[in-house]
Simulated assay, not measured.
Amino acid sequence: MANKQLIIDADMSVEHKVMGLLACIAQEKKSEMERLLKPSGLSILQLSILHSLSFAPKKTLTVSDLKATLVDDNPNVSRTLNKLVEAGLVTKLRSEQDQRTVYVSITDAGEKAHTDADQLLLNQRIDLPENEMNALYEILKKL
């Protein structure tokens, strides 16, 4: 884990301390999510894809629309989709009208994997009073 105290005690501007602490906390939370997801066999990117498909109209998106829904601009989406197809969690279907367009749909097994993995992550909490959590949220929206 990152030693946040080094940043807190550092001789630098508050703005730089904020950026450093945000980076440390983001890395810690990502590592925690990866650890929690490990038993599911899903990566964060795989779960994000399943999540996007699960909430899409008709549970189907084109590959380009799917990429647009992802928070992280990851270059490994095509390779990750192929792994999800191999696992039976999604299907891919090429458009008959335009061979360049590929539709991706979540399967029933993908829905279950998504729901189960989400539960692993949604049980995590940030230990702040509600008023501080709301204040933090408002501040983060500004960044």
Rank of each mutant, 00 (worst) to 15 (best):
K4N: 07
I106M: 04
A26G: 10
H114Q: 11
P57Q: 09
C24V: 02
H114R: 12
S43D: 01
P39M: 04
K142P: 00
E15C: 10
L36T: 07
L45G: 02
D127R: 15
V104P: 00
M33P: 00
A68R: 12
L122W: 12
M133P: 08
K67T: 04
D108R: 06
P57W: 10
R79P: 01
S31T: 06
S40V: 09
R100N: 15
C24N: 02
V14M: 14
R35T: 12
S48T: 09
R35W: 11
E111V: 14
S78A: 07
S54P: 08
A117T: 06
K67Q: 11
S78R: 09
E86F: 10
K38R: 14
L70H: 05
L122I: 15
Q124E: 14
H114M: 06
V85H: 10
P75D: 05
S52D: 03
M1Y: 12
K29C: 06
A135M: 10
D118Q: 14
F55H: 11
K59T: 04
S13N: 11
L121P: 00
G110D: 01
K112Q: 14
A2G: 10
T60Y: 07
P129S: 14
A135S: 08
S105K: 07
L36V: 05
E130I: 10
N131V: 09
T115H: 10
K17N: 05
V90A: 01
V77W: 07
E138W: 15
S13F: 12
M12H: 08
L136P: 00
I126C: 13
I126W: 15
G110I: 02
T60F: 02
I8D: 08
L93P: 02
N82F: 08
I8F: 13
G41M: 05
N123F: 03
R100W: 13
E15P: 03
N131E: 15
H51A: 11
S48R: 05
E111W: 10
P75N: 06
I8L: 13
H114N: 12
R100D: 12
I25L: 10
P57N: 10
V85A: 12
I25C: 01
I7E: 03
L89G: 00
M19V: 15
